[in-house]
Design a protein around this nucleic acid. Structure first.
Length: 168
DNA sequence: TCCAATATTATGC
DNA sequence: GCATAATATTGGA
């Protein structure tokens, strides 16, 4: 699962910056937080297949809604083939969380049938390539402690706050 | 195959 | 509260 064939990158401009979406032939593979400086320019949009343009449109809308604390109406197909079985199980479970709902790593582990794999769940969340759309930010540690976040704890706090979730 | 690292959790001081 | 041990999964030597 290291083989990264060839992905297509497309930019999504939001009020919080320009996100970078990564697509494969199967669907959305990854989503990156806005890079500090001059993000790589939106590549040649002309070479983008029709399907991906549609996905990108859906992704764009879903992302913007998610950023404002609302649940996306529609998600593009997610290509999670880059993750292990365990990770995919975790991500699938994450997608079940509704806006404003939170869950602990331990509880999440329990839901996927690995009651003691809380730590591994943390690892799976950290390996999540599609933050925001796969709500890894809604996962807190046991005592409602913040835990961590790939794109920076700052984002986690901001996202949760917009969904009406207060964290210590 | 083994070793080290982790966005955890439960327990003991 | 802080330090320590236990546990699951992953990635690399």
């Amino acid at each position: 699962m290291k083989t990264i064939p060839r992905y297509l990158e497309a930019a999504i401009a939001t009020a919080d910056g320009t996100f970078m979406a990564l697509y494969s032939s199967k669907g959305l593979v990854g989503l990156n937080f806005p890079a500090r400086r001059g993000t790589t320019k939106p590549g040649a949009a002309g070479a983008v297949p029709e399907v991906i343009r549609k996905w990108h449109s859906t992704t764009s809308v879903a992302l913007k809604r998610a950023l404002t604390g609302k649940s996306p109406r529609e998600l593009p197909p997610l290509d999670v083939s880059s993750g292990t079985n365990f990770q995919q199980a975790v991500w699938r479970e994450l997608c079940r969380l509704k806006t404003g709902e939170t869950c602990s790593y331990g509880e999440l582990a329990r839901r996927i049938g690995r009651p003691n794999a809380g730590r591994a769940v943390g690892g799976a969340c950290g390996a999540n390539l599609i933050p925001v759309l796969i709500p890894c930010h809604r996962v807190l540690a046991a005592n409602q402690k913040p835990g961590g976040f790939s794109g920076g704890l700052d984002w986690k706090r901001k996202l949760l706050e917009r969904e009406g979730v207060a964290i210590q």
